[in-house]
């Protein structure tokens, strides 16, 4: 167990590699109840979220999910979040645990003048992620109706408990995230495990998201980085006028100083694993590093000079004094054969 943002969480149950491969090949279940929820509802809910989130909420249908960033005025990334549109004027945003209080305060601070109700819902939701190619079939046996399509959500009863079922995740696999009453979460966990979901911990969550090329706020992105250098320009719709939009638009322009950096995925060419903070020759730093169970190699994410960010570019990383060769890889690093 390790402490994380005030939560006691298992790093692994029976081993990171076994849990990782269970999610890639079958199905795993993660307790991600540390994630926070902020609810925004009311006539101006859309207008407020257009200011607070980088994506264009007009493109988010009822029952849909959208990834977006919360930026400050300088374009720094305060958090990356998924927002679910539960009804026309009713949204639920899932925050990262370490940022939840700041996000909530940011929402409340900016809500004045908008006809909305902003509420902290973190204490009311446990959250379980069921991920992997067999997760759909496994859940179908426990659910009272069809599961939502990818990037959608709906109310369902699963293992006897009514809950919000969201077809989203952080592993690069098909799957769902369940938001449910904490009082019933233990029984639902047991039912999922009984149906064949492999318990998986924080360790596998990290190796899976690294293979999938998904950044982790606090490691790979934070308020010192803007969405463009983080490779998240696709999640930004500056025309909505969100907070930070002008800075993001400016960051899209070519940088005459040539000092711009880009967040890339890399794979170590031989043995060894680069870790967070390892320096890259010629400039740059590793922000996440770990072992890829699928590739059986060290992989990671790093900021490198923009002119050395193309896939195939060779890097040399100082790993505890040893020069390790690495190669920039396209995201995701691991892609399932079709």
């Amino acid at each position: 167990m390790m402490g994380f943002a005030g939560w006691e969480m298992p790093v692994w149950y029976d081993g990171v590699v076994a849990e990782h491969m269970a999610v890639r090949r079958a199905a795993g279940v993660f307790d991600v109840s540390h994630m926070g929820q902020v609810e925004v509802r009311g006539p101006d809910a859309m207008a407020l979220l257009q200011r607070l989130l980088s994506g264009d909420l007009r493109r988010l249908p009822e029952g849909g999910a959208q990834y977006g960033l919360i930026c400050d005025e300088r374009g720094g990334i305060l958090d990356d979040v998924l927002t679910y549109r539960l009804a026309e004027r009713h949204f639920l945003t899932v925050t990262n645990a370490a940022n939840h209080e700041r996000d909530l305060g940011w929402f409340l601070d900016h809500a004045s003048g908008f006809d909305v109700d902003v509420r902290d819902r973190r204490e009311e939701f446990a959250m379980l992620a069921v991920q992997g190619p067999e997760s759909g079939a496994l859940l179908a046996r426990l659910a009272d109706g069809p599961l939502p399509p990818r990037n959608h959500c709906c109310q369902r009863t699963i293992a006897g408990l009514a809950m919000l079922v969201c077809a989203t995740g952080y592993t690069g696999e098909a799957g769902v995230e369940l938001m449910l009453d904490p009082a019933g979460a233990g029984a639902v966990w047991d039912a999922l495990v009984g149906a064949g979901a492999h318990p998986a911990g924080l360790g596998a969550r990290d190796t899976l998201r690294l293979e999938a090329g998904l950044p982790l706020h606090g490691n790979d992105i934070d308020e010192r980085r803007n969405p463009i250098e983080a490779g998240l320009g696709w999640a930004c719709a500056e025309q909505t006028g969100f907070i930070g939009a002008e800075a993001v638009a400016a960051a899209r322009e070519p940088d005459p100083s040539a000092r711009a950096e880009r967040l890339v995925c890399f794979e170590i060419a031989g043995r060894g694993i680069a870790r967070q903070g390892d320096r890259i020759e010629g400039g740059g730093v590793v922000t996440s590093g770990g072992f890829s169970p699928c590739l059986e190699r060290g992989i990671g994410m790093a900021y490198v000079p923009a002119d050395r960010s193309a896939p195939g570019t060779e890097l040399v990383i100082d790993v505890r004094g040893a020069a390790r060769r690495a190669v920039v890889r396209a995201k995701p690093i691991y892609r399932k054969e079709q």
Partner: peptide, 9 residues
């Protein structure tokens, strides 16, 4: 010497 595990070196 060093041992590298999934978690750490």
């Amino acid at each position: 010497t060093e041992i590298e595990s999934v978690k750490a070196v």
